[in-house]
Design a protein around this nucleic acid. Structure first.
Lengths: 185, 185
DNA sequence: CCACGAATGTAGCGACCGCTACATTCCGGA
DNA sequence: TCCGGAATGTAGCGGTCGCTACATTCGTGG
């Protein structure tokens, strides 16, 4: 493996940590390079441009989160939507995934205004989450399962958003209230 | 009324339209001034700085949305949370309020990273929406009413977010699915 | 040991950013 | 009519941005 490839991997991991810690606003080429412990000149040697560096780093971030999700939710078991919603709501208001949700909000916002490469990143991450939720729902009808997964993901993302706009206590209360939700049929 | 005050109002309205149409990414001082039909020098004469201009424009935007909400939802009537959720979900996926939701995502993202003045703006807008939803919920217990309002707002915002990440059809299907939600008790 | 490509450093380009100092024009009241 | 403040224009400051041209050093295969 060339030095470039090695560095690329090391730098990607550090970038992921930096993004989780500080968000996209501290993500200029020079700032990213400093956080990764390399010169800005070298960052753009390892990656062809800033977009590629960010894409790789975000892929790393979501991969890490995916592993945590796998570990925290009982594997293989399919749950009723009510339970999955309750667990997801609890998780998203917890301290562990909060950095990710904050970063995720920024990615979504950048995607909303069409900024490359965030539109692609947002689409991929959303698709990944939807597939993950779907695979854990004990709903037979595929169409209904997909729609339910979308609604659960919307609720989860919305709770993270509520936390930003109304504070953690309000978001926690809403997450508690999510336990009273029932899906029919 | 001085010319300055007159211009301030005219410019505020144009800025609101520009923000709705193009979002925060096209919101540099020079771009805002061009959209408002004044020189950048004059924009910062009417407003003391960029933050003040954006705050006024966003207040204008939310005021407009508030008027639309008042007009579209039966006034004075208190609804069951299921119905309010269904109506809100339908509204947020409609073409009318979509520009606002896109802008709202950007404001939330900026607030999440602590950017002034968006943290304040996000807090005020969220509080306004929560109060509006609460005033239309036929739930007796104030604490439960507040928590339910938070959950409904989270669902609505989440649907807008889902539309960005997964596309309009997925968001529509999830909004449809929201009709099957029941709150207990 | 040396040639050659990989790796790295130095320096800066042109564009945009928010904002301001300064000069000038406009206009209504004394 | 002229004076003073409001209104507006001109020009540019110091900074960050993403990115690159060019030069230099390093390390390894022949």
């Amino acid at each position: 493996m060339t030095i470039r490839e090695e560095q690329r991997r090391r730098v990607t991991e550090r970038l992921a940590g930096h993004l989780l810690a500080t968000g996209l606003s501290r993500a200029s080429v020079r700032q990213l390079a400093a956080a990764a412990g390399v010169s800005d000149r070298m960052l753009l040697y390892y990656f062809k441009d800033k977009a590629e560096a960010l894409s790789e780093a975000m892929a790393q971030v979501t991969s890490q989160l995916g592993q945590r999700l796998e570990a925290s939710v009982t594997a293989g078991e399919r749950l009723a939507p009510e339970r999955l919603l309750a667990e997801a709501a609890q998780m998203v208001t917890g301290a562990e995934v909060r950095p990710f949700m904050a970063l995720w909000m920024e990615v979504i916002a950048a995607a909303a205004r069409g900024e490359a490469p965030f539109a692609d990143i947002a689409g991929q991450v959303t698709a990944g989450f939807l597939a993950w939720i779907e695979s854990r729902l004990d709903i037979e009808d595929p169409e209904r399962r997909r729609a339910t997964a979308g609604l659960i993901l919307a609720a989860v993302d919305g709770l993270a958003l509520l936390e930003i706009g109304a504070g953690a206590p309000a978001a926690l209360a809403a997450a508690e209230r999510a336990r009273d939700v029932r899906f029919t049929p």
